[in-house]
């Protein structure tokens, strides 16, 4: 999938480009507003990542031009400014998400994937699974190797999230927001504890571990054959 990053800070742009490329996207970088707008209008991208403050024309102008051209490419704003009116302004113009610097790359990645998925098939699978783990949303049943696992409601939601986005590293903040509706960066290690408990029920009795900690980034559910 092709993404466009418009970011005038050379290092930031380069790192983002590298990170997104390594995450499996084909990322292109523009370092000024005019090039960025030209590319955005002609390049057929799946997602635009725009800095607000840019030489030439700012991110908002690019967004306006893109929307005026009838493109509904999802747009994610990056900014060092965190004034409420800025945020409102961006969203009013049709931005899809907004990240304030400093942000964690894992957070950006998770949001990029969310935005890209939004356009995709809306059909909700009711049966999720990986390896010998399966989760049935309708019967609210979880089984591992044929054995039923009893989970609390929140543990069930957590496992559902991990399963739906298997292979993706989910940062703690995203987990807190999606499972518990806690939309703020928190100091606590609540998520760590919750994951530990889920692991105890899902993974501990099995050699093939499915829930992995990616140090400093978050958690991922995937089958690792090694």
């Amino acid at each position: 999938m092709k993404l466009l990053i418009v970011e005038d800070q050379a290092k930031t742009g380069q790192y983002l480009c590298q990170g997104l490329s390594e995450a499996g996207f084909s990322a292109e970088l523009a370092t000024d507003g005019n090039t960025g707008q030209h590319l955005a209008l002609t390049g057929d991208y799946a997602l635009l990542i725009l800095d607000v403050m840019l030489p030439g024309r700012d991110g908002w102008q690019i967004l306006q031009a893109v929307r005026a051209a009838g493109l509904d490419t999802p747009v994610l704003f990056l900014t060092a400014r965190d004034a409420v009116e800025d945020r409102v302004h961006g969203l009013e113009l049709g931005a899809d998400d907004y990240l304030v610097k400093p942000f964690a790359f894992s957070e950006l990645l998770a949001r990029v994937r969310t935005l890209l998925r939004r356009g995709g098939s809306p059909t909700q699978e009711t049966l999720l699974g990986v390896a010998d783990l399966s989760l049935d949303l309708i019967r609210r049943r979880v089984e591992r190797a044929g054995q039923r696992i009893d989970l609390t409601a929140k543990e069930f939601s957590l496992l559902e999230l991990l399963l739906r986005r298997q292979g993706e590293v989910l940062p703690k903040s995203l987990i807190a927001s999606q499972v518990w509706d806690m939309n703020f960066e928190s100091d606590t290690n609540v998520i760590e504890v919750a994951i530990r408990r889920l692991r105890l029920k899902v993974d501990d009795a099995h050699d093939n571990k499915l829930i992995h900690t990616v140090r400093g980034m978050g958690y991922v559910l995937e089958e690792r054959t090694a």
Binding site: D82, A83, V84, V100, P102, F103, A104, E185, D187, R215, G216
Partner: peptide, 19 residues
């Protein structure tokens, strides 16, 4: 990374307070 995350959290919190 741990140090940096701590610093980022600190800066975000301070920006919040400044706001």
């Amino acid at each position: 990374l741990e140090e940096l995350q701590w610093m980022a959290q600190l800066v975000n919190d301070m920006l919040y307070l400044a706001k």
